[in-house]
Design a protein around this nucleic acid. Structure first.
Lengths: 340, 340
DNA sequence: CTGAAAGCGCTTACAG
DNA sequence: CTGAAAGCGCTTACAG
């Protein structure tokens, strides 16, 4: 069943069928209805390959989600898709794992899908530096800031990662913690966890505390990875009274590791997470965390992208602030366990 | 940059470039190497739209994953992709949400991707009954049995859901539980949770216990949904001493709800999960569960599919057995809280 | 081992 | 308002 069959059945040319298919105005109501009836009757759907092969430009946007299992990104992704639905914009979602190069994949997809714009959820700055210049359509990087990148067609929506790290440090300081271990993500300085770590250091420095490398461990976004990292951290920095994990999913591995070492949370060790995923609120203890405004990130990403597509705005870099969400996993340091 | 440009650059015809691209044998080493050098140099990748538009049959398999956020299905999905990688088979993964009709979507994708086979992860039996007859290529349904469906090109790999439900009932009975609440999934009788519920009833009947409708609540695969379901369940069946949740992700919502009602797990109420996702092992308490053999499901699914594709086997329905995994969320009923 | 030509199923100027 | 024709970038008989 092709457009030719429909044309024959309807007694019209293929051009006319194409017009009916694409809601083109130059067609009589009568003809359009007849064609639509036949399409329905034969349950015909046009071949997308042929369509995009020929089309000079598609009309959908591309959503690249890096971190298929991430509950945090899922929440934003769903928000974006909802926003797009409401605006009548088709979105083609592509999932990548943590190691993939999202920019290279996007470049390839651009040729095949010819999207009008792209939203990158959870991208890696270095991938953008390496090859984003090949992408010429409007794009938005969500959850990491692109303000230091030299691209005029790339906006970004993120939290202020440096300030967020500082805030985490201050919250833990206010609770009396002086010996804090840190579980961080990706090892790039310009990525969110690099910026947050710098913020944490700055926050502690204000209180006269220097964070050394022995207080920091790397982890991927797998719970098991955070578990291992915590074991290693406690080995090299046993005096810690609190752990700051840069993602709630990591905090879960952290808490389990602490429990397995016979430590109570938060009585012996406090744990602070980051992101504010749904699971954090169902965990036991409920995870004390810094909540990222996922719905705001979603709607702003869409708004920036459509604005750039319609040429009403230029590339723009928005930074939001996370909210402290008290849970049950962090508490004031007890006097008797203070090292000082 | 198209195949024509490459042909011009290499001083050969497009047919020859196509041959080099597709690893066709009828080409001299010299020519192939020259073409490959140019492809690398210009970083050319063929347009998939044009390719599949023309190709009578593709060579990739389709993997339809229903339940994008499901950690259980993710584990199987990753196993399948790994198996496919090792066998040198390309797989195109498509994610759907719980409400989508995976069979209709697959029918559409077949026309566009022309896959040689499809694996459905987490499908709904009723969708297969409605429209699977339109699919003519070999398919495998994973995690639900298709043995009662009349399709010669559809195999299945699943656990024996009825026996699994009975096993859960027996385990809880052995722990002394007589008043067990059940949090089940999808409301279709022929789907896994329907079969498991029938198994649970059978298991309890052997011990002279009848499970009434007031002991059963529905839940989606969202933690919050299981939380609400548990609240409702405890309202209408307050005497329960154990809850069987048909997915670990539900068990998390169940435990949180019980804790919020001031009940201790497992001291006051035992909770048994299902699936054996990684998170279950990091939760506190560790979730007692029935572990599905995800890696075995993955490898068998691939083996069945490739066997059918190469016509060496016919459609086949394999049922596996889950393993009891003792955790910390279920325990023997304490004497003093026994109702009898 | 190689290449010219047909054609996959659409869309898009172009002409009427 | 409508249709014949060109062409998107490939693959695939076919002929050499």
């Amino acid at each position: 069943m092709t457009i030719k069959d429909i044309a024959r059945l309807a007694g019209v040319g293929v051009t006319t069928v194409s017009r009916a298919l694409n809601g083109h105005p130059d067609i009589s109501d009568e003809t359009r209805e007849k064609i639509q009836r036949i399409i329905k009757e034969y349950n015909y759907t046009p071949n997308q390959n042929a369509r995009t092969l020929k089309q000079s430009a598609g009309k959908s946007i591309l959503l690249m989600v890096k971190g298929i299992r991430s509950m945090f990104l899922s929440a934003i992704s769903e928000g974006i898709q909802q926003n797009a639905d409401e605006a009548g914009i088709a979105v083609s979602v592509h999932y990548l794992d943590e190691q993939a190069d999202e920019v290279s994949v996007a470049i390839k997809l651009c040729r095949e899908l010819k999207p009008v714009g792209i939203i990158f959820l959870g991208g890696e700055i270095s991938n953008f530096e390496r090859s984003f210049s090949q992408i010429k359509i409007p794009c938005v990087l969500s959850t990491a800031s692109a303000k230091n990148l030299p691209f005029e067609n790339l906006s970004s929506v993120s939290i202020d990662d440096f300030a967020s790290g500082r805030k985490a440090a201050e919250l833990l300081c206010d609770m009396g913690h002086r010996n804090v271990g840190i579980i961080r993500g990706s090892d790039e300085i310009s990525n969110p966890s690099g910026l947050r770590l710098a913020g944490v250091k700055e926050g502690f420095r204000k209180h006269g505390i220097v964070i050394s490398e022995s207080q920091v461990e790397f982890s991927s976004y797998a719970i098991s990875s955070a578990y291992e990292a915590t074991m290693a951290l406690c080995g090299k920095f046993p005096e810690l009274t609190a752990v700051f994990a840069m993602a709630d999913i990591m905090a879960i591995g952290v808490i389990r590791a602490l429990l397995d070492m016979g430590k109570r949370v938060p009585t012996d060790v406090s744990v602070m997470g980051f992101d504010g995923i749904e699971l954090a609120d169902y965990f036991s203890p409920r995870i004390t965390t810094l909540l990222q405004p996922t719905q705001k990130i979603a709607s702003l990403s869409m708004r920036l992208l459509t604005g750039m597509i319609h040429d009403t705005i230029r590339a723009n870099h928005i930074q939001l602030t996370p909210t402290f969400k008290p849970g049950e996993s962090a508490a004031h340091l007890r006097r008797n366990s203070m090292a000082e």
